[in-house]
Write a protein that binds this DNA or RNA. Structure first.
Length: 533
RNA sequence: GCGCCCGUAGCUCAAUAGGAUAGAGCAUCUGCCUUCUAAGCAGAGGGUUGCGUGUUCGAUUCACGCCGGGCGCGCCA
């Protein structure tokens, strides 16, 4: 249960269903916490008006009349404004009731119970080297999206697709072989398109040291995968499933998928290779699935992989891809339709580029990649996660490593953590903790400033909705900044521990509620709250 | 040439799933520490939202066309 915000949404939804026989998607209410326009503002009258070609003001008035019946003392007043806004001024009582419930239920207050089975595939970097800073953004965003989905009661599996087959791997293996020769002092040859990174030498060295008798290819892939897992672990990210492309092929799954499409008449031969007519499903051109050298293309495997996903019966598939894959979306969606599924089941989120802003100007010579592990080691897990989430998924992210390390108010994470530290400090001084909070004292919260602060706090529900429906973690960051700002303001102006014991306990409930919200939000972001600074 | 992302204050970015007077921080200037952490708070200045047209009650947001910046366009993966 999430207090009045949830309740009001349910009520409005019922009214619309009963009277207009339609179901409008969220948001039904926008939370404004603004003196002029009230706590909740709804545009549904305007949405209904354009749908039924009626006067928005009429609809708004009608909805207002029906809304009134549902409330006794939760609402101060309902106003209809200009083109058709319905503005609700929530009563102090409703706000305090929400506060009481929040303190009792803690973070459960904000949860939902949607129960969808969701498969989230992200990172899926080729096992040809350690993860780069670009992969890091996908990893963190994906992990946080998973947390958001889970928080709303969905069953989420995080999956990593291992591209352990194809030319890239072949090139890597041959590079390792040459490096082994180099170490042994034999003649060797590193070609132009080989993997030039120093880490290839490390792999070769380790392979020799361990006197591995196993297959070199398996050794190399396992070795790199262990790096990748370690890099992810350093960011507190763990995957539920690791799906191997090679295994899909060896199990005959890819072949089966191609013949399945062939039976549907969607595969044809041309110039010695086999093509899938993706144009029939909206793609710009048909795509090769079996090359003229009889090898499978990456796309062929991907069709099979998505078929495999679909057969595992998820209600939603979400893929996080880098911007270089945007041209690939139509192709995969076509494949899903060709396989006989609704392409809307797959949601693809493109995570834009990351650039590093560093003072010492890490050289870009020879396209040298900067490893994720170096970044995490330098600025720590929490700051790395936070700064990766700073922008919308679709926006370029400039990662300011200098700022992320800085212990100053310029650093938004410090500012937020500082709020938490101040709260902890007050509780410590009062020799109390969260368990000692008695909600009967909330009745002493009678100043406008206190109630307004409470309003901000309760907007977390709305923030979570936004993040959930848009799959944009950045909204949680933005909320945390706002909350921290308002907390610091409140802190400066109102002393919590004061002569008036009732006031003290009342304000402590506000602090406890803030602590719950801060901890909850940070937990979703995978960041540890700091208790002392 | 085609496709994707971006263009908002001097700088870095916000603006919620079209909403009401486009907001923060930095930098500049002015105040506030015998009082729960000054890593903070209060205040001032700063805008033709790249340009144009359209969609509608309403556009920073959507559509189309320009201009400018970034990236991608394999029988690579």
């Amino acid at each position: 249960m999430r207090g009045f915000y949830q309740k009001f949404s349910e009520i409005l939804n019922d009214i619309i269903k009963n009277n207009y026989e339609v179901e409008l998607g969220p948001p039904l209410w926008e939370v404004s916490a603004c003196k002029e326009f009230g706590d909740l503002s709804s545009m549904v009258a305007l949405r209904l008006a354009s749908k039924f070609k009626k006067e928005p003001l009429e609809i708004a008035t009608d909805l207002k009349l029906k809304l009134v019946n549902y409330f006794k003392d939760e609402v101060e007043k309902i106003e209809i404004i200009k083109p058709g806004f319905i503005n609700i001024f929530v009563s102090k009582k409703a706000l305090l009731d929400s506060l009481n419930t929040l303190i009792k239920e803690k973070e459960n207050f904000f949860k939902n119970n949607f129960k969808e089975r969701v498969l989230l595939e992200f990172v899926s970097a080729n096992p040809t080297g350690p993860l780069s800073v670009a992969h890091g953004r996908q990893a963190v965003v994906g992990d946080v999206i998973a947390n958001i989905l889970k928080f709303y009661g969905n069953i989420v599996e995080k999956e990593y697709y291992i591209n352990d087959y194809g030319k890239q791997i072949e090139v890597l293996i041959s590079t390792v072989k040459e490096r082994i020769k180099e170490i042994k002092g034999e003649d060797f040859c590193i070609s132009q398109d080989a993997y030039l990174g120093e880490y290839v030498k490390d792999i070769a060295k380790t392979y020799l040291e361990k006197r591995e008798t196993t297959d070199l290819e398996n050794f190399v892939i396992d070795y790199i995968l262990s790096w990748i897992k370690k890099d992810l672990k350093a960011l507190d990210i763990e995957f539920d499933n690791w799906i191997s492309q090679k295994k899909l092929i060896n199990d005959g799954y890819v072949e089966k998928t191609i013949s399945f499409l062939n039976e549907k008449g969607l595969i044809y031969e041309n110039e010695g290779s086999k093509w899938f007519c993706s144009t029939k499903f909206g793609d710009d051109k048909d795509r090769v699935v079996i090359k003229s050298d009889k090898e499978l293309t990456y796309f062929a495997c991907d069709i099979a992989y998505h078929k495999n996903k679909l057969e595992r019966n998820y209600q939603k598939l979400i893929n996080l891809w880098g911007p270089d894959h945007h041209g690939y979306i139509k192709r995969v969606k076509s494949a899903i339709e060709a396989l006989g599924y609704d392409k809307e089941i797959l949601k693809i989120i493109i995570i834009q580029l990351v650039t590093l802003k560093t003072k010492e100007k890490m050289s870009k010579r020879k396209g040298k990649v900067i490893f994720l592990s170096d970044l995490v080691q330098r600025i720590g897990k929490d700051a790395t996660r936070f700064y990766y989430l700073l922008r919308k998924n679709s926006s370029h992210l400039e990662f300011d490593t200098q700022l992320a390390q800085e212990a100053s108010f310029n650093n938004a994470l410090y500012y937020i953590q500082y709020a938490n530290a101040r709260i902890e400090s007050i509780f410590k001084k009062a020799k109390l903790n969260g368990k000692d909070i008695d909600v009967t004292f909330t009745k002493y919260l009678d100043q406008e400033e206190e109630i307004n602060y409470l309003r901000i706090l309760l907007q977390f529900s709305n923030c979570l909705d936004k993040a959930y429906y848009t799959l944009e973690p950045v909204f949680i960051i933005e909320f945390l900044k706002t909350l921290a700002t308002n907390f610091h303001k409140f802190y400066e102006r109102n002393k919590v521990l004061c002569e008036d014991k009732n006031k003290t306990y009342a304000r402590l409930t506000l602090l406890e509620a803030t602590r719950i919200v801060l901890h909850c939000a940070l937990k979703i972001l995978g960041i540890k709250p700091v208790e002392k600074m």
